[in-house]
Design a protein around this nucleic acid. Sequence first.
RNA 1: GCCCCCUUCGUCUAGCGGUCUAGGACGCCGCCCUCUCACGGCGGAAACAGGGGUUCGAGUCCCCUAGGGGGCGCCA
Length: 480
Amino acid sequence: MSESPISDRSEIVTRFAPSPTGFLHIGGARTALFNWLYARGRGGKMLLRIEDTDRERSTDEAIAAIVDGMRWLGLDWDGEAISQFARADRHREVVEELLAAGKAYRCYASREELAEMREKARAEGRAPRYDGRWRDRDPAEAPEGVAPAIRLKAPSEGETVVDDKVQGRVTWQNKDLDDLILLRSDGTPTYMLAVVVDDHDMGVTHIIRGDDHLTNAARQTQIYQAMGWPVPVMAHIPLIHGADGAKLSKRHGALGVEAYREMGYLPDALRNYLARLGWSHGDDEVMSTEQMLDWFDFDGIGKAAARFDFAKLENLNGLYTRQTPDDQLTAAFLKSLPHLPGGSAFLGALDETGNARITAAMDGLKERAKTLVELLESAKFLIEKRPLDLDAKAAKILDDKGRQTLADLLPALTACTDWQVPALESVVRDFAERTDRKLGAVAQPLRAALTGRGTSPGIFDVLAVLGREESLGRIADQTG
RNA sequence: GCCCCCUUCGUCUAGCGGUCUAGGACGCCGCCCUCUCACGGCGGAAACAGGGGUUCGAGUCCCCUAGGGGGCGCCA
């Protein structure tokens, strides 16, 4: 284990350390993103550590979900993911050192005693905490047959300071912090100990995590100091809240990133949104990955919690959708189908013709879609089989008058030999003019017949994409 | 209860003592464009939590209050 002081290391090392008890939720994804941006933007390393010491709740499925989520978001890490549980021996080794140095001690207090202490402290208006009764007691007084927990002998006077890159200089009075447990009475390391030892051993130089860990930072600092290890740079970023300002819960957006995938968001758009949530670079809203890497710094991180706003995410996603070149978007769309509701059925119905139509129609489709789900919805007419089902709006447009218009138009379209947008457009416009109709009075029934909907891409594009045979057939279906 | 943190338009935010009659983005409302829906263009309503200081001058610094958040486990 290298113990070079942080100041000697030129390379920045960050880490993302999720506990595998569920999916990668959106807050975790942002934490991972910030770590990634900071490290990658500075040519440093980003590590992944799985905090799986809670054997009851940790699952392999959760690890897979976290890894999938990160990959989908385009966040990579260096080396293999590290299991915290697997490092328990090393954690115990450190506790031995602490014990030998008189920086830790065995505590034989029972759970009942601890509960009493907490109650008493609370009644006296103090923080509920351990009273240190075994701190200086002679080990000879240890009760028979009781396995002790090992506690850190933390300083009881003075203060502990965390010089946080986001929160600023935060100070605690040591009297308000009790002697935390390092090793449970069953010999397993606690989270507080494991995190410090792992971050140190992994050479982590910058800890970027949610500000729910701010208090932990103080206690962990005490462990670093007891070991004489350099304390990494800390940056505690504000949490993400739901639209109502309360902590993110399932009914808000505390969904796994795979849920956002299923809602049809593009990873690049989500990344941009997440980066911009709680962090800013002047007035810049839309930024490329390169720009984010270049610009990201602690300076731009706000101190207040940010609310998750789906409307803004959706807007940004629409922007990215429109911005993506047709071929790339088509590829992304096809790839995402298995993850979209109804996407598998669509995929199953796809044939060569359908594929070609999607590619041809993408330019008009993407202009109107804010998500891939909307894109899927609006692409359905391309592969539907005749005769089409009409939605309510289309049915209303295709009343007697509408169908008559189509019947009148059909010969002119049938006579069109050049089935391309310019020619089709002039045929339809000429027809409208000749029959003294407004273009809309022709276009709408046409749209309804061709797509079964009241809305679609430009009608001339639809005609061209569908092709002569299919278009004339769909029109004929409605003129019966 | 105790400790810590936070507070600019509805939301994300710019602002790092004077250039702020507070800027941008999303959303919202009008108008324009228009074959539908979008896109786009133009315009509009909309905020410095409250109170004390400091200062020639405060959204920017300090204190208090209120409100919000986080933490107080032999969980992570």
